[in-house]
Design a protein around this nucleic acid. Structure first.
Length: 477
RNA sequence: GGCGCCGUGGCCAAGUGGUAAGGCACGGGACUGCAAAUCCCUGAUCCCCGGUUCGAAUCCGGGCGGCGCCUCCA
């Protein structure tokens, strides 16, 4: 088939491990295995967190559009993530539970549900596997045992630790200078740590303290450290080596560095993951959106502002995932207008049929694919979609065919979404309907003073009237 | 202080050697009784300085400014 030539553009992704953009070649032909770092569910996930999921979804949908079978695993961290990464501090889940006067399980369930819902609302494909740390304790213990058998662990009073000094490549991934690290702080709270970069694999429950989340293990009652769950679960579902691991840039230094250390030492494998992809942050007021600063926006906030959730996805697509993106209410409004107009075009050509010309469609199709193949350049891909939308060369059926095709990746619901001006079609309000009818009568009698008065009154309460060939219609802004 | 990223029209944002994608806003036009919605048109030489090159937003050097990581963080 000639069609297959369009797929010849090789997919290239920027890989953090090698700091280069490389052609993607899965370990198993035709099958891409992807692991995405999901949330620690101790608090609501904001739209910055959501950016990571949108990025992973863009990746997965791009792979699917190229005909790959994809196994996408996403984790939920619901235990072991401490407030302080130096293996001291409280467990975030336990703390959140204590503050709310509820159980850790309740907290986790609530925020997991919210996160799942938000993901769906912005068009993220459900993961093939959604796995929770608390449901994989044995997998984590097994992994730690492999490390113990191979001599990578040591035991001190508060837990079993990973000895980074025994893994020569430890600093390689993140380009760390271990000697220059500000080690004092990380050593202070944990007596016995051999190196500041060492991290807990299994933490013991403090003497006399009954935790909500604790389990028996070969080393004593306690809970797994942060990082272990990702190694254990990704390997459980994707095998001891797989293709792509995604996450936020903040994870490069500690979380992913430690995952690599655990996994490569436990399974004597290198490189453990072929390609590491990291998304940049969403900025709010010039700085990264951060829970700890209270500088966050939730998807429900955007919805409360009158935005359709997919407007946020459209917003996301306007910037490259490896660039910091500036979030402002104005930018959201701009995205909303842009999205609505794109939807309008789609709705106008929706369902068009007839003959299509390959000669005019192929270049656009190819440029769309090239954009995505170039390290998921969504802004460029979106620009091609706009070109199609506003093309004077293409027939409606051709525009529809391309837009529907592009939307399998963009996922902007171009197949069903209604433009703003048509959303009121199903809405009805006897009082407003009557006023609109009254204005229609006034207009028919060329009594424009009265007609305009009615329109102004409705406008004052946020109702906009549009006169169309089929008569007047209204909508709430 | 160390490491990394970034600085493109009013705003958001692509573009990494050959005379600046796209979206939003503004202005102009078409349409309209006037509007709304829609459509069309218009706008930047790319933070500053120096260098390499026939040619640089794009490479190199030096500034200035911003952000991130190094401490919880997608």
């Amino acid at each position: 088939m000639r069609e297959s030539n369009d797929d010849a553009v090789p997919l290239e992704f920027y890989d953090t491990r090698t700091r280069t953009q490389r052609v993607f070649e899965p370990l198993e032909a035709g099958h891409a295995r992807v692991y995405t770092c999901g949330p620690t569910v101790y608090a609501p996930q904001h739209i910055g967190n959501l950016r990571s999921q949108l990025f992973a979804d863009l990746l997965v949908r791009t792979l699917l559009s190229r005909g790959y079978q994809v196994t996408h695993v996403v984790n939920i961290t619901d235990v072991g993530h401490l407030t302080d990464d130096a293996d001291a501090g409280e467990d975030k889940m336990e703390r959140a539970a204590a503050h709310a006067g509820r159980t850790a399980a309740e907290i986790a369930a609530e925020y997991t549900a919210q996160w799942v819902r938000d993901r769906e609302l912005v068009g993220c494909r459900p993961p093939d596997v959604l796995c929770r740390a608390t449901e994989h304790i044995q997998d984590q213990i097994d992994l730690i045992q492999r490390l113990e058998e191979r001599g990578f662990t040591y035991r001190i009073d508060d837990g079993l630790y990973f000895a980074t000094a025994r893994f020569p490549r430890y600093a390689e991934f993140a380009g760390l200078d271990l000697n220059a690290q500000t080690s004092a702080a990380r050593m202070a709270d944990v007596p016995g740590k051999q190196h500041p970069a060492d991290f807990a694999l299994w933490k013991f429950a403090a003497p006399g303290v009954r935790r909500q989340q604790e389990w028996d293990s070969p080393w004593g009652r306690g809970f797994p450290g942060w990082h272990v769950e990702c190694s254990a679960m990704s390997i459980r579902y994707l095998g001891p080596t797989f293709d792509i691991h995604t996450g936020g840039v903040d994870h490069v230094r500690v979380h992913h560095t430690n995952e690599i250390a655990q996994s490569e030492c436990a399974y004597e494998m290198h490189p453990w993951v072929q390609t590491w992809m990291h998304n940049e942050f969403l900025n709010l007021a010039g700085q990264k959106m951060a829970k700890s600063e209270g500088r966050v926006a939730l998807l429900e906030d955007l919805i409360a502002d009158g935005h359709v959730p997919l407007v946020y996805r459209y917003f996301f697509l306007q910037a490259h995932y490896r660039q910091q993106q500036a979030f402002t209410p104005e930018a959201m409004d701009a995205a909303r207008t842009g999205y609505d107009r794109l939807v309008r075009v789609a709705s106008e050509v929706r369902g068009a049929s007839g003959k299509t010309r390959r000669s005019v469609m192929a270049p656009l199709r190819r440029r769309f694919q090239q954009a995505l193949a170039d390290d998921l350049n969504a802004p460029r891909a979106l620009a091609v979609a706009w070109e199609v939308a506003r093309s004077g060369e293409l027939e409606p059926v051709e525009r529809w065919t391309l837009l529907r095709e592009f939307d399998t990746v963009l996922q902007l619901d171009l197949e069903h979404a209604l433009p703003k001006s048509e959303q009121a079609a199903g809405e009805s309000d006897p009082r407003i309907d009557a006023l609109v009818a009254e204005r229609e009568r006034a207009r028919a009698e060329r009594d424009f003073a009265n007609a305009d008065r009615i329109r102004d009154e409705l406008a004052a309460e946020g109702v906009t009237i549009e006169d169309t060939p089929e008569g007047a219609r209204w909508r709430r802004e």
